[in-house]
Write a protein that binds this DNA or RNA. Structure first.
Lengths: 209, 209
DNA sequence: CCAGCAGTGTGATAAATATCACCTTATTTA
DNA sequence: TAAATAAGGTGATATTTATCACACTGCTGG
């Protein structure tokens, strides 16, 4: 388990008792890049707080398609797992580790309890929901109003902010995240290359705009 | 202002002190059907709790387009206005009264204070964010994965759940909400009529599926 | 009562995106 | 090192959605 000092670094706004509670009740878990952490429809058994690495959150279509919504970084939590009533809550999102990650798993029976006991936990939950709500608003804005070329640009910029100017994704992976086809992405990237916005390599490209 | 008894009917889960605080600090406002209550980019000055009537929440595109996200009903609050830090928060949504409405306006300087003082307020804020987050997930699912015919059906069903089987909207209004054109909606509704799903009239139709 | 307008119907066409086919090139593996 | 595999390029075509043009109809205000 992490020490209190470690926890303070990652979750600086918690109160003393909450750090103790986390140390006592949470389990520190690891997962390899590529692991699916949460599927749609799956019962939620524990809250997920990111300690290290990056998680990608998706909406999953009935047909099996995936639609990228936002990243989760250290110090952040997966909103849907912070359930207040712990009876048969089912996940409405798909969560995947895209780097090797470490996270705290907290059995959901503590969610209600901690809300009562720790003010800083309450604030954390509100901040989490608020920021995720705002991410979803951005995603809706892109999806509802923009064509694929602009959506792709927005998508790339989010990648760049996360991981720097070298985007290490195949055209197919990007197409999956945007729920379109590989050909569409290939052609749009080719246009960007012609415009001098990117420099393409196999399995990656550099954002230069 | 409303009496405590009225408040209890609409917001049953608040604690005693919170009802008092609302009576003391909130202003009961009215607005006519069609009024814009909140524009994107506008500074948020007060929280909005719906007392009577229905509000529609939209995402607004840069080009001026509107995209319907969800309804707000009595007992519910506009999530974006429940801001914790009251420095220059700007609205990221568009809110319109679609019936005559009554709502409580609470100056946002009380948001932080009430979070500290009233546990039931804290829970209310969390419930609000959680349910709105879930609405957005549904909206994203429709937008990202479905064609216009299915999206229209989903949209109509939400209307029907709100207002009953007679949908009193023009094709143009529906087109605006779904960020498409009137012709597209006209043609799709015509198909639904041919399938026997709806009965069309001028300015309205009946859902019979 | 009729002129004008909002609401609706519908064909023609354009634009965006999806799908299919097939090719080339780089990388991995037997 | 040859063969298999993954990544990417590109034309042809189909589907979905957007846009334009114009007709029709029922309602409303002078």
């Amino acid at each position: 388990m992490l020490s209190k000092e470690d926890l303070i670094k990652i979750f600086p706004d918690f109160e003393d008792g909450l750090y103790q509670a986390i140390i006592k009740e949470a389990e520190l878990r690891e997962a390899k890049a590529g692991t699916t952490l949460l599927k749609m429809g799956q019962n939620i058994k524990s809250a997920m707080l990111v300690v290290d690495g990056t998680i990608k959150l998706y909406q999953e279509g009935e047909d099996g398609g995936e639609y990228f919504m936002y990243h989760l970084n250290p110090g952040e939590a997966c909103a849907v797992t912070l359930v207040c009533n712990y009876h048969h809550e089912q996940s409405q999102v798909l969560a995947k580790a895209i780097t090797d990650i470490q996270y705290l798993a907290i059995p959901i029976e503590f969610m209600e309890k901690w809300l009562n006991e720790f003010k800083s936990w309450h604030y954390f939950v509100i901040r989490t929901y608020r920021s995720r709500y705002e991410e979803l608003l951005k995603t809706i804005n892109e999806t509802a109003f923009k064509n694929m070329d602009e959506r792709l640009e927005f998508y790339i910029i989010r990648q760049v902010k996360q991981f720097g100017n070298t985007v290490k994704l195949t055209h197919q992976e990007i197409a999956n995240d945007l729920n379109t086809s590989r050909e569409v992405i290939s052609r749009l990237l080719k246009k960007m290359e012609n415009n001098g916005w990117i420099e393409m390599n196999r399995n990656s490209f550099n954002w230069m705009k």
